[in-house]
């Protein structure tokens, strides 16, 4: 089976936050929950980089390791999902995740955490595919319809890639090779180079 992964190409991401908006809209996430976010380093400074982050769907997910009720599971597609009927909202996955993917509905100070919510790779949850119950708890299930996550599908610069890890890495590898050639060709680092490959390479 395929192994689903996200990849965000920081050389392409323009911090338009459309992926964040698309995700919120597609999945009707609760207020205060952001399954996806765009992080910008050195905003406004030359060398600025942006990156869209959500759940990475780790192969050996630390959230699943620490969960005291063992509510996480990995689908055949390699998507890390969790069962909200079992989740007790303890927040341990939030501590264990290096990327800050697990989210909790914001309920003011002294609040009890509600059930955890995170990116599902638009693959829903353990409920029946595309059922109302599934949509209410986890948002849309595009994967079962043969579609990829909406954030990546509508990314205008195709910075955010989603899909089978092999395909994603092939696409990215091709990009890197072209960039490397551009660097060699111009003798400068990519940061200062033109975003296009040189004319010599274009023909090939």
């Amino acid at each position: 089976m395929a192994r689903m992964k996200f990849y965000c190409d920081a050389e392409r991401c323009i911090e338009c936050n459309a992926c964040v908006t698309a995700c919120k809209n597609e999945n009707e996430v609760p207020w205060g929950v952001n399954r996806r976010r765009v992080v910008t380093i050195n905003d406004g400074v030359p060398g600025e980089r942006s990156l869209s982050v959500a759940c990475m769907h780790c192969s050996d997910a630390p959230c699943a390791t620490v969960c005291p009720v063992d509510c996480f599971y990995t689908t055949d597609d390699g998507v890390v999902l969790h069962d909200k009927d079992i989740c007790i909202g303890c927040g341990y996955c939030f501590y264990a995740c290096p990327f800050g993917a697990p989210q909790f509905p914001d309920d003011g100070a002294f609040a009890s955490r509600g059930k955890m919510d995170k990116c599902t790779f638009c693959a829903g949850g353990p409920e029946e595919d595309n059922s109302a119950d599934e949509y209410q708890k986890y948002g849309s299930n595009r994967l079962s319809e043969g579609k990829l996550p909406l954030c990546a599908e509508m990314c205008s610069t195709k910075a955010l890639l989603a899909g089978d890890a092999n395909v994603v890495s092939d696409i990215y590898r091709e990009r890197v090779i072209k960039r490397g050639a551009s660097v060699l060709n111009k003798g400068v680092s990519y940061q200062n180079a033109s975003l296009r490959a040189s004319a010599v390479l274009k023909d090939k």
């Binding site: 936050n17 992080v39 050195n42």
Partner: peptide, 11 residues
């Protein structure tokens, strides 16, 4: 240290 890191998502 990577310089200033920001996000439009405030949490």
């Amino acid at each position: 240290a990577t310089g200033k890191v920001t996000s439009q998502v405030k949490s």
